[in-house]
Design a protein around this nucleic acid. Structure first.
Lengths: 342, 342
DNA sequence: AATAATTACACAACCGTTTGCACAAAAATC
DNA sequence: GATTTTTGTGCAAACGGTTGTGTAATTATT
C-alpha cells in the first residue's frame, strides 16, 4: 500500500546511519564496511528501493536521454530505424524520447524546442521534407548538445551524419541484371534534386560502363514518383526503339505501379520484363509479382550506427578547446538482396 | 559560445535580486512589481533562459512523461496508434518515452522496470503476445502509477483498457455482403483463443441471424493465420457443397493468401468470389486485387483515446481513500469502410 | 606506549526551481 | 502622525541523491 517510492533517507533513518553512508553502501563504495553494506542492501531490497533517476539526472546535469525526431513511423524504413536506435540506447543505458515531425517543418521546430527544454543529452534526427531552414539547430549546438543527422541530411556542413549510399547497391543491381543477360536496362529514377536519385544514377552508369556498355540517357527517366509519371515512363520504355528487358525502379511503390501497368499492357512480368527495386515495403513479398531483387538500405543497422555515434559524442571528452572538431560522416553501403529479403 | 544553459541564479545575480523574485517574475506571480517583471523577462529573453525541466520534474516529483510500450512499430496498427498517443501527449504537455517489446515477454518486463525507475507518471501498454504473467504490473500499481492497457488487453480484472470491438464492424461487413446479394459467406477466422476471433464470429452470426439466415458453422473456419492454413480453408470453401461467393478474412495478410490461392484455382476475384478484410496494411490499395471493403479499427483514434484516459488518470485527484475505484473500459467501435480506405 | 596509518562513518554542500513565511517600505486609513 | 493595510521582495527549506572533507575509532608501526 506504499504510495511513494522508497528514498535513501528512509533507509538511513531506519538504520540510524547517514544518507551518505547509505548512498555509498548501495554504490559499493570501498570506504563502507561490509556489515553496513549488507544491512543497507537488505533493507533496500525489502523496501524495493530504486534510485530516483530524475534526482540523479538533475544532480548530474545529465538526462541520460536522447531525443529522436523522425518524419513518419508508418514508413517502414523509419520504424526499422527506431528499433535499431532503441536497441543501442537501451543497451547503453539511455532512454529514448521519440517524436514524429510528420514531415512538417514547423512541427519539427516545435519538437526541437521541446527536446531542448527536456534537456536531452543528444539528438538524432531525420529532417522533414519541408525543412529548408536550419537555424534552429544552432541553439542545440550552443548548448553543446550533439546532433546526429540520419538518412535525410541537410545540405550544410559541419554536421555529423549517417546515411546510406545507394550507389553501391545500384551498381550491384545493374550488374546483376547484366549478368542475367540483360543488355537494355531502364531506370525509373526520382526527382533530380534528390541526392539519392543521383546516387542511383551514378551506380547505374558505373555498372554499365564498367561492363563496357554505353550509357543511354534515354533509358534513365526521372519522375516525381507518382503513379501517373510511372505509367508514362513505362510507356516510354515499351515504345522505345530499345525496349528494356529489365527496369530498375526508385522504390517499391514505383515498382508496383510499373508492374501493374506492364501487366495491363500484356507484358509477362519476369518473362517479358524483369524488375529490381529498393526495399521499402515489408509486404512486398506477399505480392502478386515481386521484383526479382532489391537494394537493401539496412535501416535497422543505420539506426544502430547513428545511435552509437551519438552516444559516443555524448560521452566523449568535451572538445572545449576550440581545436578542429571531427565530423562523423558515416555511409552505410547499400546491398543487393536476391530471393528472400533478409 | 555559452556552454551551460542559463539558470535563474544567473539572472538573479545580474539583476542583484533574489532567485525567488526571478522565479516569481517569470511565472507571473501577482506579488511581483511590474517593473521588476519586465526587467527579469528582458534579461531572460536575452540569455535564452529556459527553465530546467529536469529540475522542475524532480522538485515536483512528477516526470510529466508517459511510458509507452508497444509490441512492434513496424505493424501499421501500432505506428498509427503511437501517432495518436503522441498527439495527445504533446498537446497536454507530456513527453513520451517509447519502447518496443518486440512481442517478447521478458523484454517487456525489463522495459517495465526501466519505465518504473524513470518514474514515468503513467504507462500505456499493448502487451506482448507471449506475456502470460502480469505480476510485474503490480509494482506500478503499488507506486500509484496508472496503467492503461491498449488493444492487446490481458484477461485480468480491475484494469483500465481501450480496445476495439470488432463485432460491430464484422456485423456491418457481413450485412454489406448480404445486401449485395451474397447468401453463402465464408469466414476465415483466427485462433479460437483470441477474443478478437470471438468478436468476429459474433458479428458474423448476428448479421446472419438478423437477416433471417441460418448460421452455418461449416462456413466459419478457424486457422492459425498462416498461409498454409488459409489455403486449406479456401480449399474447403471451394469444394464445399455450399460454395461461398464471398469470404471475410481475419486480416489483410490472410486476404492476400486467400486471393492468391483463389486466383491460382482460376477463380476471378470480385466476380466469382469477393473478399472483405480488416484494415491492417496501408499498402493494400496498391495491390493487384484488393478486398472490396475493410473493417477499420481506427488505431490513431484508439491511441488518442488511450492517452487521454491515461492523462486524466494521472491528473485526477488521488483516490487514496479506498473507495471503489472506477475502471475505464473503453471500446472503440470498428466500422466498415468501402471504396477508398479512409 | 606513543605515533602513524587505516578504516568506517558523518557532515554539509550542491544541482535548479518553487513556495511558505517574514519583513521592510510605501500607501491608505483614521 | 500613529496605525493598519498593501505591495514588493528576500530568506530558507525542500525535492533525492552524490561526493569532498573531516574525524573518531581501530589497527599497525616503531
Amino acid at each position: 500500500m506504499s504510495v511513494k517510492p522508497t528514498t535513501i533517507k528512509e533507509i538511513a533513518k531506519l538504520l540510524d546511519i547517514s544518507v551518505s553512508t547509505v548512498s555509498r553502501a548501495l554504490n559499493d563504495h570501498p570506504s563502507i564496511g561490509l556489515t553496513t553494506k549488507m544491512r543497507v542492501r537488505k533493507i533496500a531490497k525489502e523496501l524495493n528501493y530504486e534510485p530516483n533517476q530524475r534526482a540523479i539526472q538533475f544532480l548530474q546535469g545529465k538526462s541520460h536521454t536522447i531525443g529522436v525526431i523522425l518524419p513518419e513511423l508508418s514508413e517502414s524504413f523509419f520504424s526499422a530505424a527506431i528499433s535499431g536506435i532503441e536497441e543501442i540506447a537501451y543497451k547503453r543505458n539511455y532512454t529514448v524520447l521519440l517524436a514524429q515531425s510528420h514531415d512538417d517543418a514547423d512541427l519539427e521546430k516545435v519538437l526541437l524546442e521541446k527536446m531542448k527544454t527536456q534537456r536531452v543529452d543528444g539528438l538524432l534526427i531525420s529532417v522533414a521534407k519541408t525543412t529548408i531552414n536550419f537555424d534552429h539547430f544552432e541553439a542545440l549546438n550552443r548548448l553543446q548538445i550533439p546532433i546526429v543527422f540520419f538518412d535525410r541530411i541537410p545540405a550544410i556542413k559541419n554536421i555529423h551524419s549517417v546515411a546510406s549510399n545507394l550507389e553501391t547497391g545500384t551498381y550491384e543491381a545493374v550488374s546483376f541484371l547484366l549478368k542475367k543477360g540483360h543488355r537494355t536496362i531502364g531506370m525509373i529514377n526520382g526527382p533530380t534534386n534528390m541526392t539519392s536519385s543521383a546516387e542511383r544514377k551514378n551506380g547505374y552508369i558505373k555498372a554499365m560502363t564498367s561492363h563496357r556498355l554505353k550509357y543511354d540517357p534515354s533509358l534513365m527517366i526521372h519522375t516525381a514518383l507518382t503513379e501517373e509519371d510511372t505509367i508514362q515512363a513505362m510507356n516510354t520504355f515499351i515504345h522505345h526503339k530499345r525496349k528494356p528487358t529489365a527496369v530498375v525502379t526508385f522504390n517499391d511503390y514505383v515498382a508496383l505501379f510499373a508492374m501493374r501497368y506492364a501487366r495491363s499492357q500484356n507484358l509477362k512480368i519476369n518473362k517479358d520484363i524483369e524488375f529490381v527495386s529498393y526495399a521499402n515495403l515489408p509486404i512486398i513479398e506477399y505480392m502478386e509479382n515481386t521484383p526479382i531483387a532489391s537494394v537493401e538500405q539496412f535501416p535497422f543497422k543505420q539506426g544502430q550506427k547513428a545511435a552509437d555515434i551519438l552516444l559516443d559524442l555524448i560521452n566523449s571528452p568535451k572538445p572545449d578547446n576550440s581545436t578542429e572538431q571531427a565530423w562523423y560522416k558515416v555511409v552505410v553501403e547499400s546491398e543487393l538482396v536476391t530471393g528472400k529479403n533478409k
